[in-house]
Nucleic acid binder design. Structure first.
Lengths: 184, 184
DNA sequence: AAATAACTGGACACTGCGTCCACTTATAGC
DNA sequence: GCTATAAGTGGACGCAGTGTCCAGTTATTT
């Protein structure tokens, strides 16, 4: 059974309203009530589809992440298959920083603390990086993979950008150093 | 003016009660009310000294952290001064993992998300690791230092230990690999 | 013993969460 | 078209936890 027309319309309204609110005042200062009000929808309707803010942010992020995921699997090197693992890892870091830079408000909304690790996206990044580490002959990839992904936590990125006022390209360069260190 | 005797007694009761509760059911499931009740103290008294859970956890962590901080500054090598920076960094990682292992419930309570970076302790670790990176001749230590500290986030440690069921020594070994990669 | 300043604790108002259910509306079969 | 019905809707409700406030209490000083 396909989705009902009014339900689809409301879903779209919720997503665009949430995106606006997150961008405007940061996810921390947006309540479920705010989103419902802004979307012109009742609380019940909102909760029917999205149990919490993270679910909404995740839905919004999903599109952007899927694009990157496809590039990783079937795109051109060095992001896609073909390049040596050290270069693919560096390219992955660069792409992730770019993603964080463009959508950090969403990332922060979606991945508060623990929940970060339980999203499907984290599983994908993890599998990808783990494969690269295996390919590069790094010892104990299962332990190192979470270490390699830790600097991509949205909180870390936000801290570097805002508290430390680091430009994006310096963060990228630092992660390139890390990529080199982990694959040799 | 010294602290009044009854105030000191109440502070001690709050701290031990909080430590017990955190250890017993995890910081996430302990409310300020719980702590006040368990300490036999009113809400107002509790809030007078500690504005939130993080402040209490921080006070509890403080002692343990100070011990390590002193070892870093004036203890024996390789933790203290004297050893080459690569070894000191590796020793620092090992000591931090040990600290996390023994007090992860407190660390998780104290450093939820963003607040992690604003604690005095983070500033200390940051300065220490930054100096080691400078010493090792690593490029752009200001950008790399937060990368180097990211894997020590309590959430990452908890994920590795519990979700991934990694033993402590494998986490330590992985961080030693990282230390080598960052100082060469 | 009285003065005083700090400390105490529970009542209170408030915010945000999540649920529930009576009502509405889109779709399918007649 | 018209009705049946199941999905979808929305706001009222109860709850949990936060943080504040102030009248009363208690340690300390003179």
């Amino acid at each position: 059974m396909p989705e009902r027309a009014d339900a689809a319309r409301n879903r779209a309204r919720v997503l665009t309203a949430a995106e606006d609110l997150f961008a405007e005042r940061g996810a921390r200062n947006v309540t479920m009530d705010d989103i419902a009000k802004a979307a012109g929808v009742g609380r019940g309707t909102l909760y029917r589809r999205y149990p919490d803010r993270a679910a909404i942010a995740l839905a919004l992020l999903d599109d952007h992440e899927r694009v990157l995921q496809e590039k990783l699997m079937g795109g051109d090197p060095p992001l896609g298959p073909g390049a040596p693992p050290a270069e693919r890892l560096a390219a992955f870091y660069t792409a992730m920083v770019d993603l964080l830079d463009r959508h950090s408000h969403l990332a922060l909304a979606a991945e508060v603390g623990h929940s970060r690790f339980t999203t499907g996206a984290y599983g994908f990044w993890r599998a990808h990086v783990r494969a690269l580490l295996v390919d590069a002959g790094t010892p104990d990839p299962d332990a190192l993979v979470d270490v390699a992904l830790a600097p991509l936590a949205p909180e870390v990125f936000r801290h570097q950008r805002e508290e430390r006022a680091l430009p994006v390209d310096r963060i990228t360069a630092a992660l390139r150093v890390l990529a080199r260190g982990l694959t040799t």
